[in-house]
Design a binder for these strands. Structure first.
Length: 336
DNA sequence: AAACGCGGCAACCGCGGACGC
DNA sequence: GGCGTCCGCGGTTGCCGCGTT
C-alpha cells in the first residue's frame, strides 16, 4: 500500500512541459510503447517523474486525442453518463473516443455543472432542486414589503427591487409547481393530480410581465438585498438583468434528457422546460403546452445489474414505467 | 495603458486498488 | 497474509489569457 515517492524526489522538474520534453516523450513511446512509467523518464532522457510523464502522455500527447470544443452530442452524452456514473470520469471517457477523463472533468466543472445549477438541477443527483420553500420566506418578505422599513417611503430603487423580488418568487413558485407536477404520472392534459392545474400555472405565468432592463437596478444591489439561496448545495447570487435566465434557462438552447441514476437507486425525474415558442408573440403571454410523452421519454427502462450502465435496457413505444414530460428549448430565455 | 478579476485548462497531489514477491 | 511497488483515478491548484474597469 506504500505510496510512490516519485514526485517528491528532489531535482525532478515540475510544471509546464517544454516542446523538447514533449518530443522526447513522444519519441520514446513511439519506439518502445507505453508502460513502465517509473523507468521511462530515465530511458527517455527526461528529468521528470514517471507519473508526470504518464499524465502528459494520456492527457495531451496521445495521438488519438480529440481537441476543441465539445459538441452538443458529446455534452448530452456526458450529462447522461454522469447521471449514471457520477464523477467516474474515466468511465465516462470510455464512451467518448478521443476525450480524456481530465478534459471531461474540466468541462464538467467549468460548464455543465453551472448549466445544471442554472436550470435548477442538483449537479450531483441530477434531481431538481426542491428546497424552494426554504427560500420562499425571504423572497416573499422582500416582495411583500408594502410598508417601508423604518417608515421611510420606498424610493425608486426599493420599488424596483420589490417588483423584481415578487417576480422572482413567482418564477420560483412556478418552477416548483412544474417540478411537483413532473413528479407525478401525468394525465393527458393537466397537472391536476396534485391540485395544480394548467390554468393555475398559466395564470401565474401570465401574471409575470415581460421584464425590460431596469436601469435602477444593478447586480450588487440585488445581491445585497439578502441572500437568495436556490438549492441546498450551491447558492447562486442573482444577477440582474440575467436573473430570470439563471432560474431555469441554459444560456443556449438545451434539451436535457434525464436518466436513471442506478447508483443512487433513484427513479428518473421529469424535466419541464418551456420554449420561446410557448409565448404568444402578440402579447408575450405564456401558452402552456400540453404535456406530451416524447418518443424518447416513453421509454421503458430496466436494469438487470444496478450500477452497471451496460445492463440498462430500454424499449420504445410501450407503456412506460416512468413517463416523462419533455418540453424542448429554454425557459424564459432572453425575455428582454 | 495599467490593474484587476475571472474562467479555462494543464498539471500536480494524494489516495487506493492491483499485483508481485 | 503482509509488505512494497506501480498505476490509475478524482480532487485540487495555479498559471495564463482575456475581458472589464
Amino acid at each position: 500500500m506504500g505510496r510512490s515517492p516519485c514526485c517528491d524526489e528532489n531535482g525532478l522538474k515540475k510544471g509546464p512541459w517544454t516542446p523538447e520534453e514533449d518530443e522526447k516523450l513522444v519519441d520514446h513511446i513511439k519506439k518502445h510503447g507505453q508502460g513502465s512509467w517509473r523507468a521511462l523518464p530515465k530511458l527517455a532522457g527526461l528529468n521528470r517523474c514517471g507519473k508526470s510523464c504518464r499524465l502528459r502522455w494520456t492527457n495531451y500527447l496521445r495521438p488519438d486525442i480529440k481537441r476543441g470544443k465539445f459538441s452538443q452530442d458529446e455534452e448530452q452524452t456526458i450529462l447522461h453518463l454522469h447521471s449514471i456514473h457520477g464523477n467516474k470520469w474515466s468511465a465516462i471517457a470510455t464512451h467518448l473516443p478521443g476525450r480524456t477523463d481530465n478534459e471531461i472533468k474540466n468541462f464538467w466543472n467549468t460548464h455543465l455543472k453551472k448549466k445544471l445549477i442554472q436550470m435548477g438541477f442538483d449537479p450531483m443527483t441530477h434531481q431538481p432542486i426542491t428546497d424552494f420553500f426554504a427560500s420562499l420566506p425571504q423572497l416573499m418578505a422582500l416582495a411583500n414589503l408594502r410598508e417601508p422599513m423604518e417608515h421611510h417611503p420606498l424610493d425608486e430603487h426599493a420599488m424596483g427591487l420589490q417588483a423584481e423580488a415578487l417576480q422572482l418568487a413567482k418564477l420560483q413558485y412556478l418552477q416548483c409547481l412544474l417540478q411537483s407536477a413532473a413528479s407525478l404520472i401525468p394525465s393527458a392534459n393537466s397537472y391536476d393530480q396534485n391540485g395544480i392545474t394548467d390554468l393555475e400555472v398559466l395564470n401565474l405565468l401570465n401574471s409575470i410581465p415581460p421584464i425590460k432592463e431596469n436601469p435602477v437596478l444593478n447586480s450588487s444591489e440585488l445581491e445585497n438585498q439578502g441572500s437568495y439561496h436556490f438549492g441546498n448545495a450551491t447558492s447562486q447570487p442573482l444577477h440582474h438583468p440575467s436573473l430570470l435566465s439563471q432560474l431555469s434557462a441554459p444560456q443556449v438552447p438545451f434539451s436535457y434528457q434525464p436518466s436513471l441514476n442506478t447508483e443512487m437507486g433513484q427513479a428518473p425525474f421529469l424535466t419541464t422546460i418551456l420554449s420561446q415558442g410557448d409565448r404568444n408573440p402578440s402579447d408575450s403571454s405564456w401558452v402552456l403546452p400540453s404535456p406530451t410523452l416524447a418518443p424518447q421519454a416513453a421509454t421503458e427502462t430496466s436494469i438487470s445489474n444496478p450500477g452497471d450502465a451496460s445492463s440498462i435496457t430500454s424499449s420504445y413505444g410501450g407503456v412506460t414505467s416512468w413517463p416523462e414530460l419533455l418540453f424542448e428549448g429554454p425557459i424564459m430565455h432572453d425575455i428582454s
